[in-house]
Design a protein around this nucleic acid. Structure first.
Lengths: 348, 348
DNA sequence: GCTAGCACTCGAGGCCGGAGAGTGCCAGTA
DNA sequence: TACTGGCACTCTCCGGCCTCGAGTGCTAGC
């Protein structure tokens, strides 16, 4: 796609980009006159019209009816986004807001993510999204069994501050001391990752008495659920109300589908995995480039954040394809950068 | 209000209720002809028209323009709701869905609430809401300090399965053994309620060395935040996408304000506290009866759920004032009943 | 290669008039 | 007195018709 830009020739590109910006700003189809005046190309509207016709031929523009102005296609937005110099500028007010938010040290990564999603949704006026780090590779600090009468709570604490719990029925044959003694065994899991701890637990279970066996398997299952299975990872969402704004002229039906999916974490997670797909850096998915965003007539801007070298999570926004990409990209990039700092610090 | 019904006279009441039901069903203003045919009152449409005019005079009906049918006012809905015999019937399919959901024993109350909210939103096609139990009166099972290197995690576990955590910077002057020894002291909190434990901690802090002092205060603060302050209680929301449905003909602006507030837990909590206000039983708040629901053109149906005798939480739905009140009331009541059973069992 | 000019297209919005739904009222009836 | 049939009236909705204007595509000419 990036070569598509040079193939276009500088003037066509300038016209296309001017149309994208004008359309994003106004929401109205853009006419040749407007571009001739605004874009400062020093040519008449007739020339612009020729360029527009060519751009439409190439699939970058379309128009709702003969006598209307042009609007960008998804390919048009794509060209615009790809043509942006990499260091997109961040509005001062936004820079300050981000700096302000991260200035107060919050020590819980999950909390920071919630706040970041809110922050992004406020800055961009779209909905914010984040995928928190999974647990597989996180070292375990503590696993405890807590005797709660008829039930037992299994509690696991990870090095980076995650806490996973599960309540199970207490095996009838096990008394308080029994629970406590298994609890002591679990001390040995300290330092292992969630993944390794599971293997270790299966070992322990194999050697243990029949009574202990079940409970140990439950613990393994808890760690598995926390780190791998369905529901292990969830998606943090915020600012959905922004999407119901008047200005975001979504059709009711489309909006509904989008909001519905945002409520279904597992589905949303899958979409986010698709659209990030091991990207090293900021990535934009525009409308029909992905079947799901296509159905929503929406675009997603995401960036990974890292702890040290390793990518541990994703943050971004979702909004209409008619999106202020530059601003959204700048905000997401900046927040991801700060989050990486927080996550890296956490790691240490 | 309940007397308002008898004051109306049986036929006026019948006409009013028929209009409410027809309007809720169709969404169109209801004409006298329709009621004369449907309501089985054995009178002509002219008589119905007279009754309608009287009901409008009394403030139970209104009409959008001269030649349109009538629609109920909030007072009209109120009369309708109050006139319902108390044991409202639950549709069979709904009864089965609720029984099915509660058949699988889930041991974590917070999880059950999330599921219940989803369930209610699915059954009613409105948005589900729940306020989980606060912690103030919950006995503490365990409080732990977990040494995580540069930080310390404070972890509190309540009798009913809640887990609260907070991560703080480790006081520079305190080593691992120091943390552990304070941890041992915290064992004495077991069995106290969150509230009592705070007082106890202030005692301990007063007697402790300066180094331990701060940490103990942090623990007290953690318990306080978990049980009382802002953010102690949150609101579980589900099925927001139902509200964006085409059929719910909300104006964009109104919908936006509703969704916005649903995202702000503290604000939503306040509204829910207002509209439940120590009600012993199912309660319906209709449109302008509360300033906030008035602004949304929405109604809220809520019911408390109990653990033993004490009310511990609230569950309900929010939808347009043009709501199927009977169905919503029946569903909310049934779910609240089941939740009470779960919560009571939990308690034991 | 660009531009001025112009014919053409098509949607938006205003106006009209008829159809239809529903009302309010009145005179008549049991 | 309470209800009803009848009827004039009101108002929205909808389709048809028109004009206006924005914007296009094309062509001839610089």
């Amino acid at each position: 796609m990036a070569e598509g830009r040079t193939e276009l020739g500088p003037r066509k590109a300038a016209v296309l980009h001017a149309i994208v910006e004008e359309y994003v700003r106004s929401g109205e189809p853009v006419g040749s006159e407007t571009i001739a005046e605004a874009a400062g190309l020093g040519v008449s509207s007739a020339t612009i019209r020729n360029e527009m016709a060519a751009l439409e031929e190439l699939g970058f523009l379309t128009h709702p009816h003969t006598s209307a102005g042009r609007i960008p296609t998804d390919a048009g937005y794509r060209h615009y986004v790809d043509a942006q110099p990499h260091g997109v500028r961040l509005r001062d007010a936004h820079r300050r807001a981000i700096a302000g938010y991260f200035a107060e040290a919050i020590l819980d990564l999950e909390e920071v993510l919630k706040g970041s999603v809110q922050l992004l949704s406020r800055l961009t006026q779209y909905a914010g999204l984040a995928v928190p780090p999974g647990a597989s590779e996180e070292p375990i600090v503590r696993v405890e069994l807590i005797d709660m009468g008829p039930t037992v709570m299994i509690l696991a604490v990870g090095q980076h501050g995650r806490v996973d719990k599960r309540v199970i029925d207490r095996p009838g044959s096990l008394d308080a001391d029994g629970v406590a003694s298994i609890g002591t065994k679990l001390q040995s899991l300290q330092g292992l990752t969630y993944l390794d701890a599971q293997a270790q637990l299966l070992h322990l279970a194999a050697e243990a008495s029949a009574i202990d066996h079940d409970l140990l398997l439950h613990v393994a299952e808890t760690l598995r659920t926390a780190s791998q299975g369905e529901g292990a990872t969830h998606v943090v969402v915020g600012g959905v109300s922004n999407l119901t704004d008047e200005a975001q002229a979504w059709r009711r039906q489309t909006l509904r589908r989008l909001v519905e999916t945002l409520e279904r974490e597992q589905e949303m997670l899958r979409v986010l995995q698709d659209v990030t797909a091991d990207r090293e850096d900021l990535w934009v998915t525009i409308g029909t480039e992905h079947p799901t965003t296509g159905e929503w007539e929406a675009s997603i801007v995401t960036a990974p954040f890292r702890a040290g070298e390793a990518t541990v999570g994703t943050i971004g926004v979702v909004g209409p394809t008619r999106m202020d990409y530059l601003s959204a990209m700048a905000s997401v990039r900046a927040v991801a950068k700060r989050l990486s700092e927080v996550a890296t610090e956490h790691e240490a």
